[in-house]
Write a protein that binds this DNA or RNA. Sequence first.
DNA 1: GTAGCTCGTGTAAAAAATACACTAAACCTC
DNA 2: GAGGTTTAGTGTATTTTTTACACGAGCTAC
Lengths: 258, 258
Amino acid sequence: MGEDKPKKLIKDLNTYFKSAFTVDNVIFGFDEGDLKILLIKRQEEPYTDHWALPGYFVLPDEDLNTAAQRVLKKLAGLDNVYLEQVKSFGAVDRHPFGRVITVAYFALIKIADFAPRPDKDVAGEVRWFNVKDVPQLDLAFDHEEMIQECFSKLKREVRIRPVGFELLPPKFTLTELQHLYEAILETELDKRNFRKKILSMNLLIDLEEMQEGVAHRPAKLYEFDGQKYEEFLQEGFSFEVKESKRKDNTRPSMPAFN
Amino acid sequence: MGEDKPKKLIKDLNTYFKSAFTVDNVIFGFDEGDLKILLIKRQEEPYTDHWALPGYFVLPDEDLNTAAQRVLKKLAGLDNVYLEQVKSFGAVDRHPFGRVITVAYFALIKIADFAPRPDKDVAGEVRWFNVKDVPQLDLAFDHEEMIQECFSKLKREVRIRPVGFELLPPKFTLTELQHLYEAILETELDKRNFRKKILSMNLLIDLEEMQEGVAHRPAKLYEFDGQKYEEFLQEGFSFEVKESKRKDNTRPSMPAFN
DNA sequence: GTAGCTCGTGTAAAAAATACACTAAACCTC
DNA sequence: GAGGTTTAGTGTATTTTTTACACGAGCTAC
């Protein structure tokens, strides 16, 4: 890919071009009130038979994001998934075969869309795990740390951007949305206050449809208004969800000036 | 570094081990009321004579953070600098000599501690630039984008963690602190409200000393109480600075539930 | 028709954010 | 040393946001 012949080159250039890099996806899904992560059982060395994040080497002519998308496509046939780069991990000895740094992404998917494609190259088994159960799994590489970082990032993101909707079906009830926030933020929320807040943002469309097939009073269905959100963004609006458990306020949190 | 002989290997393993990676540092400093970034004039191909971020290849036996620290050490003899990984950049064609992905870090330094070490290997010239002037510089590689990302991250960080103090001398006045926040957040802050907020956090030690050598009423000097901050963190306290320019509140920002 | 669920709603009190202007303390100049 | 210049330091009233909290409505299953 060199265009010019270099005039003054760094020393030992070639010693540096011996590394590889990978992407790993922390794929979040939301089901039955729980936040879940998709893991695969590795079929290849190293860490054969360990649970691990789905990931792969980045091809020589492939961007990082493209590589992350490709993994999702191959694993579950999913396109256009919400992906965000989180952090790179490059400890010297993290991979036994050589120097491999990896870029962690988190992906948010609607679990109903997910149709695993058994591809014996990549994964012997594919399974959703509750986020809370991850520490018991003895994951491959530094994948446990990667999950923690991605989970932290998701917690932060969900408060300042309406990414949570990526985890819900297109039509959802406010209670489902609340449960989602509770699962991500790992806290309980007050029903009335939650609804007041969410509805005051004017980002939900009331579909004037009802839940069906439930053995109790059915709830209204809503839809996230992505278009309106785009407009608001243009105007400099900011979605913001705080948690603010300020039980004692002897040490106040530091809020707005001005 | 291999421990076991692998049994089942991925195909074409060797085709992947041909990449290199680098770290690049966006070094922030604060001087005369302005937020500045340190750039170097490149001496090596590619982009010779372009202004660029200080960065270098990661050595084969070196962690990413270590590499970023090393660059700072070499450039200015600085140890123990506040560093944070921000994002990796891996566009296929970002480096003309081959596949090179880079990890961007931001560094916060006290500008007075900075003593550039002219090292002709690395940098022909080293200069502080106002953040706002960066777009006119025609930087090497994708460094301009990296700076934007780091600046955004700094804006976010400074609201939720007391990292700003890394940019100030150990003893500072409240007005200096306010100017720092104004430079980073790119907004004006109200003096009385700012002071009220900052002091109410109980994280500043009043040194009972005065500024000297100024041609006006001298201000009190303060010190950041890092130890108390650590204690607060343990207790689950959260530093939080919002900006909240809520001129019209027809579209409310989405705050705490509960 | 009633037992068992979940849905949906409002208000009052507390806390936080905002807007705003003058006196105090030092130095400088003449 | 009087007056001018500059920045430091301070308090209050209003608005907005957050919080805490309980019960009737509507559906199903039996």
